[in-house]
Design a protein around this nucleic acid. Structure first.
Length: 336
DNA sequence: CGCCTTTGACCAGCGC
DNA sequence: GCGCTGGTCAAAGGCG
């Protein structure tokens, strides 16, 4: 499982997302050739400073790579534990079966909330939210949920609960921090029906329903990332039971994923937040891919998606050029 | 007028 | 059983 993850560490060594000053490093020696003498001393200092920063960034990248490897190793271990528990739960299904059967196609399930019983249209919603097949639910157990599975009993209960949930996916969208609205343009029409401040995040979370089709069961939660306010975390629950509505601004393409990808390809500089965003998306996708049944296919898709995303990103290209130039300079004998 | 957002209240699940 | 928290409802108001 880990050889392909090791490849991701390569990208970390490219100093992607370095401060713009660090990216000037390779250009400096060329400039020295044409500059006046009185600039040479100043230039030397600048080059030294840039080299120091480059080294510091390199060390930081190394640390991050190690951290990533540690996280992946831990995830793999936890995934193994979850699989074991799933197998154990399947073996002892006679006990857990009561919970599961109550949430499956029975419709009039005992576990349905009073809220859903209260209103007929929301009951329709509950019907649309048919439980996913077990393997799908498992595929969407997020890594942080995995971390909470220290106690086997609690984990088993959680897994059973996950079975009842609709398909959940997360998207991370880079947003202007000055823009206070929690709007994630994904090509669909959404109606906001609530907003709440959650415990773990000072930024409010907004709740949206798909307003294009009244019976569409999809819900969306949008909240700014607690550690990076420039990132909007959109959590989608369920799947649209209709096509994408026509767009007037011409921005949106055939799918919400494409629309989101398009947003992420906006010509913004490769900020630290953007890199973290990309990194986290990779982790999410790795988690989803690793937990799924067709792991190989998921990995292949992930690799292709990453390649396409990275090669289209001008910031990544610039960072790649910078990294390569820096490495060439390091190896050059004329280096001071 | 219809649709949308805002926002306080309510409800259910969960942990202790 | 109680309190906390996340999720949802629904009335009120804004906007085109």
């Amino acid at each position: 499982m880990d050889s392909w993850i090791g490849q991701s560490s390569l990208s970390l060594d490219l100093n992607v997302g370095l401060p713009s000053t660090a990216r000037k490093a390779p250009a400096a020696p060329i400039k020295v050739l044409v500059e006046e003498n009185f600039l040479a001393v100043k230039k030397d200092h600048e080059v030294e400073a840039l080299e120091a920063e480059l080294r510091r960034a390199g060390e930081e990248n190394k640390k991050l790579s190690e951290m990533l490897r540690a996280v992946v190793a831990k995830y793999t271990e936890l995934q193994g534990q979850v699989n074991d528990m799933m197998a154990a739960a399947a073996a002892g299904n006679h006990n857990a079966g009561n919970h599961q059967s109550s949430s499956t196609s029975g419709g009039g399930s005992v576990s349905l909330s009073r809220k859903r019983i209260r209103s007929a249209d929301t009951l329709d919603d509950a019907h649309h939210r048919k439980p996913s097949p077990p393997f799908v639910a498992a595929a969407y157990v997020s890594p942080d949920q995995m971390e909470c599975t220290s106690a086997a009993a609690a984990a088993a209960k959680r897994i059973v609960r996950e079975d009842c949930k609709p398909k959940v996916s997360k998207r991370f969208v880079h947003a202007d921090p000055s823009d206070l609205s929690l709007v994630v343009k994904d090509g669909y029409q959404w109606r906001k029906y609530g907003q709440k401040v959650t415990k773990d995040n000072p930024c409010p979370r907004a709740y949206f329903r798909c307003s294009f089709a009244p019976a569409c069961p999809v819900k969306k939660k949008v909240q700014r990332s607690a550690d990076d306010k420039t990132i909007l975390v959109a959590t989608y629950e369920g799947e649209h039971n209709h096509g994408q509505p026509p767009q007037h601004d011409g921005k949106s393409s055939s799918s919400s994923a494409a629309a989101t990808a398009k947003q992420q390809q906006q010509p913004t500089p490769p900020s630290e937040g953007a890199i973290r965003l990309q990194h986290r998306q990779q982790q999410e996708q790795q988690a989803a891919a690793a937990a799924g049944p067709s792991t190989e296919v998921a990995r292949k898709n992930l690799a292709e998606q990453m390649a396409v995303t990275l090669t289209r990103d001008p910031g990544f290209k610039a960072a790649l050029v910078t990294a390569l130039s820096g490495r060439i300079l390091e190896l050059s004998p004329s280096k001071n």
